[in-house]
Design a protein around this nucleic acid. Structure first.
Lengths: 251, 251
DNA sequence: GCTGTTTTGTGCGATATATGAACAAAAGTC
DNA sequence: GACTTTTGTTCATATATCGCACAAAACAGC
């Protein structure tokens, strides 16, 4: 791509949107300037543009995003067949097992939830389509990383902040790579309270009709009611059934 | 705002993102140019910028959004306290009633779901945070419109495509305005299969501690299991309880 | 395989935007 | 209350983008 085919003002604006998160819901011009590295004048122009278009509110001091921003993410969810196709299978899985079922894809070092059928909340955080979790310690992350060439997986791990969320969390790249090999061999990934104490989950890769891994499917359960050792026996058949059925419809 | 405080390249890029939807998941440069009215050269530069940043894929012919786009909408969901605050109440409502509970806000002529606790699917469409429904025929839309001055509500209705989704759907602005007055007076809105046959719902406005309506809360149920006439009696107490509790915590 | 049609890529002048310094206004410190 | 620091805004100008016009390529119908 040529230099002139890149609209830097657009790129800067997008980076301004991404600056907002749970720890920074309301930002001043200088806040945005500092976080993004943009000049204060430029940050201001980006923010005023967002406000003018209705994507942000401005009270004279702080900017906050408005729900109109959801149109952007929704454009993806609505435009991509994958979420719509997997949803009925998630519903069925969730109903048959009494647990939460989700589907996700990889984006950088994170998995991104694209669809979910939730049962009673067991996690401390609320997962919805668009939610992100670090790939290295999530069951779907493991199967998605396992689907990559090892060098790619290593590259992602090297960019990840490998922190021990619980005593169980694998944090050494070599440990995780070894686990990915096991995942690849057995065709599923099992997580026993690596992300959060009390939560375990099992995931399988979703392949399209040409055998390429396009997403992951999982079932999460409270460790208290279903020990990790019982996950495979109890839920793997249903997961594999869904996987096989989806393989027909994913292009 | 001054002319020079507006970054038109950014605004154009955002309009390009919004061009993608369920009917147009994959778009060529000319498609985008036609739909947005942007010059082809400009549409191309916006799309190439999106691709360069990883927000879109490009196969040399068509562009498609990638899950990275979800970061943008997620910035709002994560950054806004409202979804997080209401979620536990939705979970509780959903569990107590055995039905789906949701919260939404108004964006233009649509309501936008910001949180949801779903039970078994009864609607033909899958609602998740970010999903949109026309306000005029949804129970939450009715309470949100009822909270506006009548001239504002009329303005929104005049911009809405008032179509009869079912034989029950109110489509005449005056009918709807009259219904809004009833909703305002009784403090809740009841929808009996106006959006979709077989689905009815009841909604109440959510107020912050200063009494301003900031969102709506609803419970949806299959008409077959819960006739619309029974909705108020059965679910209104729980909805009002949640509303009262949330009034304390919403600022 | 030719012709008409549509789509895509590119160079260029006119125009809009980004930049950083300078100033103004708040906010914080002592 | 005077000083320092932070924040917001404005302005001139160097730079990048826009949209047109043209060229090239892909496509469709015969």
């Amino acid at each position: 791509m040529r230099e002139t085919d890149f609209i830097s003002g657009f790129a800067k604006g997008l980076s301004v949107i991404e600056t907002f998160d749970e720890t920074r819901p309301r930002l001043s011009i200088s806040d945005v300037s500092k976080t993004t590295g943009l000049d204060r004048a430029t940050a201001r122009r980006c923010l005023l543009t967002l406000a003018e278009l209705g994507y942000a509110d401005y009270d004279g001091k702080f900017f906050a995003l408005t729900p109109k921003i959801l149109r952007l993410g929704h454009a993806y969810l609505a435009a991509t067949p994958l979420p719509t196709l997997v949803q009925p299978f998630l519903d069925q899985l969730s109903e048959r097992t009494g647990q939460s079922a989700s589907a996700s894809v990889l984006d950088g070092t994170d998995i991104v939830y694209i669809a979910r059928a939730a049962q009673k909340r067991v996690m401390s955080i609320n997962l919805t389509p668009g939610s992100r979790l670090p790939a290295y310690c999530a069951s779907m992350g493991r199967v998605l990383l396992a689907a990559l060439p090892e060098t790619d997986a290593r590259a992602i791990l090297s960019r990840s902040e490998l922190k021990a969320n619980t005593p169980n969390t694998l944090t050494k790249p070599d440990e995780i790579i070894a686990e990915l090999q096991r995942v690849r061999a057995q065709g599923y990934a099992l997580i026993d309270q690596e992300l959060e104490l009390g939560l375990c989950s099992i995931a399988v890769p979703l392949e399209n009709d040409r055998g390429r891994v396009v997403a992951a499917l999982n079932i999460g359960a409270p460790a208290a009611s279903v020990p990790a050792s019982a996950l495979a026996e109890r839920y793997l058949p249903a997961l594999f059934e869904a996987k096989a059925a989806l393989k027909q419809v994913l292009r």
